[in-house]
Design a protein around this nucleic acid. Structure first.
Length: 652
DNA sequence: AATAGGATGATCTAAGAG
DNA sequence: CTCTTAGATCATCCTATT
């Protein structure tokens, strides 16, 4: 494929562009787009390695068959020709960057090439120059990160090339804007940032409202109209919402109305015409055919992930496997390196869709650890491991409360029907609560009244209490939790860790038997041992699982923020007489390409990347900051993804 | 170290419609 | 009978304050 052809292809794409999404996370971009009527998740644009256009071109060449490519009209499309010329003349270095991949010979040329490189990506030349001046020309990563910072500070996104080229075909602008507004996977901030500076895409009415706003002569209704329009919602939708709900309605309620309307519309689109129920909230007739078609497509694409019942993933040892026991992975996702990602199953809506989209669109395997242990633990796992010929750890752990705690049988009242515990949390019940339960019970002879029973059962389920004496319930002891989760006894004991912190570390950990069952397939693949990169290691659930499977650990690089947890893993490592090497790091966000490159060359490539990113912003027990995937800690998921990508690059 | 502090989304249940 | 629906019930890798 010639470079000339790459260039042409790029501009054709830019014209066919339906949707551009990006997420900005510390120096890398991830994006997908709609081409014709299909969504493509292109992957990651890696700073200093490739740039958007070339990556897109490569992607299309790899995914569109030869016949399809020749069907594309390369030259007759006036707009793409014009666009190319327009940008090329406005930006002489740009074309050179697109075409050229030869090394620059002088430093001057290198500098202009570098400038062209970033300007070609759509960043303002001013910012690029500033960034290069501050960082020198040696490190493209650093420059990019700097530019991105500047861009964010100025609250204006990198101007996309498709915007620069300004296609301006009729109907296109509106679609572009609406498509963005429909993307609920975007955080509000991203949406806002992206929409600002896209004045070209604002409708005439929107512009009029803006100018009215400047002169301060907006009515209350118009002000609301503008607020929502600025958020990216189509003006006509906002108008209808205002009409139906009344001008007094608060903005939040209007938002809700519009969202419901959009959802209803999508559902309608999904149905055949005859089946359309009279639940149109917004009139569908005003929508262009094109848009309607797009929504129908989008609806298919964004079908949300549902949890299976029973939650057994691709199968558990104690149950008949579900019907489908085979799966095919996309080529780019295939291992080695193998990866294994874990998080809570019950997240706010859309979180698993996002996670899955980032991890090669692999369907999560949702498994409840109650099939491996006496306590429940509903978790989702995304991995590229084979799913045939798994085997469980032996000895099999106790599967019921009665087996796990035989001594409790004597005190277990007949009206407590539990045989499994609920999920192990990071905190335990207060002494006051167990005391309250005891006094309430002692007041009645024999079985307490039904209302009391209900209250006690509610508390027992909420706090995972077990019966330890007459009328006496108690939370689990740390060593009991260790046993239930599959860790050796006293795994977290000693080393200066407090009782509270033991509960916290254990509550944040893997259920070893569950994870081991999934990882067991690695034993045949790597009979001589493996190199593991363990992110968010915690107390080393993955390491323990691999060790118990009898898989030799050659080199383990473990990244964990908490020193107490690192010490636990280190001490376990020494106690189990490992022959390999354990290297630990503190901060995932500082684990950059240089680290990966250096480690890869030292140990010869990672075979397995394993980790569960923080769930505290996703978990239901968080009353304070359940902010979803963009939350303070949970957004570290993007670092898992970033590092996985780096491992893949350097392993080749 | 102890204590108190709800909200979201899945699942269960029963009533109602066809 | 099956299917839909609304309401009830249930579970949840937690955080701020003291």
């Amino acid at each position: 494929m010639t470079m000339q052809r790459v260039r042409s292809l790029y501009w054709v794409i830019s014209d066919q562009w339906r949707r551009w999404c990006y997420s900005l996370r510390e120096g890398f971009l991830s994006f997908g787009f709609l081409f014709e009527e299909e969504e493509f998740r292109v992957g990651v644009w890696r700073s200093g390695v490739k740039w958007l256009g070339v990556l897109l071109a490569e992607f299309l060449v790899a995914n569109v068959s030869e016949g399809d490519i020749s069907d594309i009209d390369w030259t007759s499309d006036e707009e793409s020709e014009t666009n190319l010329e327009a940008v090329a003349s406005a930006n002489p270095t740009c074309t050179e960057t697109i075409v050229g991949n030869e090394e620059a010979s002088s430093s001057n040329a290198a500098r202009s090439k570098m400038i062209g490189h970033f300007v070609g990506m759509g960043f303002a030349e001013k910012l690029v120059l500033k960034a290069i001046d501050e960082n020198g020309e040696g490190n493209p990563d650093l420059i990019l990160s700097c530019i991105l910072t500047f861009s964010t500070l100025e609250e204006s996104p990198p101007q996309q090339l498709s915007t620069n080229s300004d296609p301006c075909s009729s109907g296109y602008n509106e679609n572009f804007l609406n498509d963005l507004s429909d993307m609920d996977s975007w955080s509000e901030d991203e949406l806002e940032v992206c929409l600002k500076g896209n004045d070209a895409y604002k409708s005439e009415k929107h512009k009029m409202l803006l100018s009215l706003a400047e002169s301060g002569s907006l009515s209350e209704k118009e002000e609301k109209l503008l607020t929502l329009a600025n958020m990216g919602y189509a003006l006509e939708d906002v108008e209808i919402a205002l009409e139906r709900c009344g001008p007094e309605t608060p903005v939040d309620d209007l938002l809700e109305f519009i969202r419901v309307a959009q959802m209803a519309r999508e559902e309608d689109c999904y149905l055949p015409e005859d089946d359309l129920k009279p639940k149109h909230i917004l009139s569908g007739s005003s929508k262009s055919k094109k848009r309607k078609h797009f929504e129908m497509k989008k609806n298919v694409i964004e079908e949300s992930i549902r949890l299976p019942n029973p939650m057994i993933g691709f199968g558990v040892p104690s149950m008949q496997p579900p019907e489908r026991v085979h799966r095919s992975l996309p080529q780019e996702a295939k291992g080695p390196p193998y990866f294994y990602y874990e998080n809570v199953a019950l997240t706010p809506k859309g979180v698993w869709d996002t996670i899955s989209r980032f991890l090669y669109d692999i369907e999560p395997e949702f498994v409840d650890s109650k099939f491996f242990s006496a306590c429940a633990r509903k978790r989702g796992y995304i991995h590229n491991l084979p799913i045939e010929n798994r085997f469980p750890l032996v000895p099999l752990p106790p599967l019921t409360i009665q087996q796990a705690f035989p001594l409790s049988k004597r005190w277990w009242p007949s009206w407590d029907p539990r045989d499994k515990l609920n999920c192990i949390q990071t905190a335990i019940a207060s002494a006051k609560l167990t005391e309250r339960i005891r006094t309430v019970l002692e007041r009645s002879d024999g079985d307490p009244p039904e209302a009391i029973q209900r209250y006690i059962m509610e508390q027992c389920r909420k706090w995972n209490l077990v019966w330890v004496g007459r009328n006496k319930v108690a939370p689990l002891e740390p060593d009991e939790v260790e046993m239930l989760l599959g860790f050796p006894k006293n795994h977290t004991r000693g080393g200066g860790i407090s009782r509270t912190d033991r509960y916290k570390s254990l509550g944040n950990s893997f259920q070893v038997d569950t994870v081991a069952y999934h990882l067991s397939v690695l034993k045949d693949i790597f009979p001589h041992g493996i190199n593991v990169l363990s992110l968010f290691s915690g107390i080393g659930g993955a390491e323990v699982a691999l060790h118990r499977l009898g898989i030799k650990l050659k080199n383990v690089v473990s990244i964990e923020k908490s020193k107490a947890n690192r010490d636990i893993v280190r001490s376990w490592w020494e106690q189990t007489n490992q022959t390999g090497t354990l290297i630990d790091f503190d901060d995932v966000t500082l684990f950059d390409s240089a680290r990966v490159e250096q480690l890869t060359s030292t140990i010869g490539g990672f075979d397995l990347v394993v980790g569960g990113s923080p769930c505290n912003n996703l978990a239901g027990s968080n009353r304070v900051s359940r902010d979803g995937l963009e939350g303070k800690e949970s957004s570290l998921f993007y670092d898992y993804f970033r590092i996985l990508d780096l491992v893949k690059i350097y392993r080749q």
